[in-house]
């Protein structure tokens, strides 16, 4: 997995790319999310467009980020959730936990 990030209208955007399966990849995503929180960036969008698939490790990292942000009066939202990830979110009922948008622009505007 590769990980890019940038800011749009004051919102931190994370762009993971590839597969999120555990190990060093997962640590990268976890650390970046928590670096945002430490820097006071409490509104985060994770752009899932280029995530091929993820397993429960990836889901756990998103939950961890969401919980930590909410505990700090922030929020984590998802954008461009693809078919494979969408079905995982549905199977695990996490679709009821995350706010998901069709584009990064829509997610940013929703804050």
């Amino acid at each position: 997995m590769k990980l890019n990030h940038y800011e749009k209208d004051g919102i931190a955007i994370l762009e993971p790319k590839g597969k999120i399966m555990g190990g060093p990849d997962a640590t990268l995503l976890h650390d970046q999310l928590h670096e945002f929180i430490e820097k006071g960036k409490k509104k985060v969008v994770v752009d899932m467009a280029q995530v091929e698939w993820m397993n429960s490790t990836g889901l756990g990292i998103l939950i961890s980020g969401l919980t930590t942000l909410r505990n700090n009066q922030g929020e984590l939202k998802l954008a461009n959730v693809t078919g494979k990830i969408q079905s995982l979110l549905t199977i695990t009922k996490l679709i009821t936990v995350f706010e998901a948008f069709d584009s990064v622009e829509e997610a940013v505007k929703s804050f």
Partner: peptide, 22 residues
């Protein structure tokens, strides 16, 4: 069960459930 409402926000415990589903 990871889909029990009380467990939804847990960071771990979904692996085997996902495997059985797929």
């Amino acid at each position: 069960s990871p889909i029990d409402e009380n467990n939804l926000m847990r960071e771990v415990g979904r692996g085997i459930f996902i495997v059985r589903s797929l």
